[in-house]
Design a protein around this nucleic acid. Sequence first.
DNA 1: CATATACGGTACTATCGAGTTCCGGATATC
DNA 2: GATATCCGGAACTCGATAGTACCGTATATG
Lengths: 209, 209
Amino acid sequence: MTQIDLVEDRPKLGRKRDPSRDQDILDAALDVLVESGYDGMTVDMVAARAKAGKATLYRRWPSKSALVLDAVACLKAGELDPDTLPDTGTLRGDLVAMIRPPAIRDGERKLRIMSGMVSLLADNPELADAAHAALVEPRAAVNRIFFERAIARGEVAPDIDVEKLILIGPALVSYNVLMLQRPVTREFLISNIDKVILPAAGVRPPPTA
Amino acid sequence: MTQIDLVEDRPKLGRKRDPSRDQDILDAALDVLVESGYDGMTVDMVAARAKAGKATLYRRWPSKSALVLDAVACLKAGELDPDTLPDTGTLRGDLVAMIRPPAIRDGERKLRIMSGMVSLLADNPELADAAHAALVEPRAAVNRIFFERAIARGEVAPDIDVEKLILIGPALVSYNVLMLQRPVTREFLISNIDKVILPAAGVRPPPTA
DNA sequence: CATATACGGTACTATCGAGTTCCGGATATC
DNA sequence: GATATCCGGAACTCGATAGTACCGTATATG
């Protein structure tokens, strides 16, 4: 056996690598990705946006694709605290309570990140996994909590297909934004809840006609 | 006024342009677009696939983007004959009757064409319009017919939001394929109909439990 | 204060792809 | 059969970009 443990060649001398630059660069990468898509984005754009030298980027990531993968993987959910989640007592109340301008903006941003990579996902399982974990699953998890609460309350039947229901909202929004190129408005989200999600969940009358 | 009408410089001499090559090239362009996405596709790939010279392509279209735009715009619906459409007497029957392997394949192909261009649509309204007309609208039109028949039969209430309901299916399928990277199966489509679309339309019991 | 490394920035190399040009051969008109 | 234009194909130009090398400067250890 060769010495495997000391492989981490940590330099003991010289200036230290500034860890705060990492996040700046990853943020810049996501910004550029949103604006230009994966193919339209250049490493120089990212460096300029982060006010960093290109060499600094390549000192930390071996390639553009590795940088983007890391940027997506490090994208935090930021809305998944079960404590900060609304709990209004009704399924509709919970779903509607999630509609707030910052959440809408965040969702649209994530959608554009996704759209900038869609054509890569097919032949890049790593990226597809990272994208799913960072962009799709967090929102689905929130909905999952709402539905399980509703089941526990007896508000919806326990045999509903939760995994399907939690995807209706994201699917409608993503189709609306990416395919139809329409903005996401509060009215749109409310009508999704009242006209599609709640009927599919078997909740009788949308409280407001 | 200058002579505007004779601008069409039709050559009267020499070999004629073979119109059948047009469709071959457009088909090849769509194939490559599906497999590689807009940015991954090269004009050489398209020429090779169509067994054509690159010069032949540029004799007919001024640029790669014009070629792709034309390829998408010329993509025909091929399923919109109101005569060949199923008419089973129930909304569910009509929707289920549309589930056939060729239609599934066709739908997935259109979806991948769309995904190969998603990031272009935002700053290319022409392309967005062409994509919508060729890829989104034909399928929506079919569903619209089914829902309007159902309303005429009294099967569903006349005040339902048809324009929203006809998009549920496409939205669920596109999310399933593009975001979740899952295949489109017959069971998936059936469950979309029974668990989401029909409840949203207010059709009481999914005939099969 | 000497050494080693990180930093932002610039210049460079190598590759790749859009678009052009030219070729020999095929096919049309006159 | 002369001429003009098409065809598939190959060679070319030119701009853009991933990745590398190096600069002068800043900051850490010893």
